[in-house]
């Protein structure tokens, strides 16, 4: 089902618009603690940009941006970042996901909280992006049980 679009206009326009979608997604993730949006919305935007390439450019072109075999490892990696930040706060002496106890020297607790939120939202964004792509790839490929 995923094959190259026959219209040259659709291909050119989608290839031109994808970097701007990804830049906006990175803005949403990075500004997640001070404005609407966050890890989930930014990750969904990143996944939507790559799914746009999957639909219009075709499988060969979009494999260069995000390989299909990387879907499941990347979603696991996002969950790992989230859990690792939580456990690092436990190692530093606090409870799970209490960012003020992250074991990084020379920073105020407010700065540590900001950094911890950024790290956790990066993990959420990576996980959501990879999970969206995995769902679409499994539906498009027809193998529902792998």
């Amino acid at each position: 089902m995923v094959k190259k679009s026959s219209s040259i206009i659709v291909g050119i326009v989608s290839r031109a618009i994808v970097p701007f979608i990804q830049l906006f997604a990175l803005y949403v993730i990075v500004h997640g603690h001070s404005s609407p949006g966050g890890g989930f919305q930014g990750g969904a935007l990143l996944g939507a940009s790559i799914l746009l390439l999957r639909l219009t450019v075709g499988r060969e072109g979009s494999e260069l941006v995000f390989p299909e075999r990387m879907g499941t490892p990347m979603s696991g990696f996002g969950v790992f970042i989230y859990a690792f930040v939580g456990v690092a706060a436990m190692i530093g002496g606090g409870v799970y996901l209490n960012y003020a106890f992250l074991p990084i020297g020379g920073m105020q607790p407010a700065e540590l909280r900001s950094l911890g939120i950024l790290l956790v939202e990066t993990g959420v964004g990576i996980g959501v992006m990879a999970t969206m792509i995995v769902i679409f790839d499994d539906i498009a490929k027809g193998n529902f049980h792998d």
Partner: peptide, 20 residues
């Protein structure tokens, strides 16, 4: 925030999954 999530997931991704 809810509107943002609805625009990304409802208008973008669920339509794409229905299409697939």
């Amino acid at each position: 925030d809810v509107g943002f999530t609805e625009a990304v997931v409802g208008a973008g991704l669920s339509g794409l999954l229905f299409l697939a």
